[in-house]
C-alpha cells in the first residue's frame, strides 16, 4: 500500500518572525478508506521524528491523535466516500509539530460533542475520539466550518 500514498516533504531553513522556523512541511492526500490510516500515521510519524529530539511519549501521542483525526475525517467527515480525500499537512518545528487534517465533508461543531466522563459512558464503545485528541495534544483548534482540525504537540 505504501507505493500508493504520495508524501511530499518540503524543507526550509528560513526562520519565521517568531524565531521558530519551519524545518519541514509534510503533505499527504489520503483516500477515504480506514485501511490507509495505519500506513499514513507510520509515514508521518517517521518524518516527524527523523532528525529531531523528541520524548518517547511524543511518538505515542502523535500516533494516537493523528489516527483519531484521520478516522474522524474519513468516517464522519467524508462518510467513506471514495470520491473524497483527506488532506494532511504537518509543520515540523524544532520544539513542536502542527498537524492539520482536513476532510471534504460539511463539518461539525466540536462544542456539541460531549466528553465521555460519566459512569454510564464507560460501557459505551463509541465517543472517545475527540476526548483523546484533546487530552493528548497541547493545543487543538478547528476552522469555522468544522471540517479541519489543527493539533499542536510539543516534543518535550
Amino acid at each position: 500500500m505504501t507505493a500508493l500514498l504520495r508524501l511530499t516533504v518540503r524543507r526550509s531553513e528560513v526562520a519565521a518572525p517568531s524565531g521558530e522556523g519551519i524545518t519541514a512541511e509534510i503533505s499527504l492526500r489520503l483516500p477515504s478508506e480506514v485501511v490507509w490510516i495505519e500506513e499514513a500515521v507510520e509515514l508521518i510519524a517517521r518524518h516527524c521524528l527523523a532528525g529531531y529530539q523528541s520524548s518517547s511519549r511524543f511518538r505515542f501521542r502523535l500516533c494516537v491523535a493523528l489516527s483519531e483525526a484521520l478516522a474522524n475525517a474519513i468516517v464522519c467527515g467524508n462518510g467513506e466516500d471514495p470520491t473524497k480525500v483527506v488532506h494532511i499537512r504537518v509543520e515540523c518545528l524544532v520544539e513542536q509539530v502542527h498537524l492539520h487534517v482536513t476532510d471534504q465533508g460539511c463539518g461539525f461543531n466540536p462544542r456539541t460533542i460531549p466528553e465521555p466522563v460519566l459512569p454510564d459512558d464507560i460501557e459505551n464503545p463509541c465517543g472517545r475520539g475527540l476526548f483523546l485528541i484533546r487530552s493528548l495534544m497541547d493545543q487543538v483548534r478547528f476552522n469555522d466550518r468544522g471540517n479541519s482540525i489543527c493539533m499542536t504537540l510539543r516534543r518535550h
Binding site: 505515542f60 500516533c63 494516537v64 472517545r128
Partner: peptide
Amino acid sequence: TAYIDSSGLGALVSISK
C-alpha cells in the same frame, strides 16, 4: 502493541461485554 485508538478501546469494551 505500539498504540491503540478510540475505536480499538471501543472494540475492547464490546469484546468485554
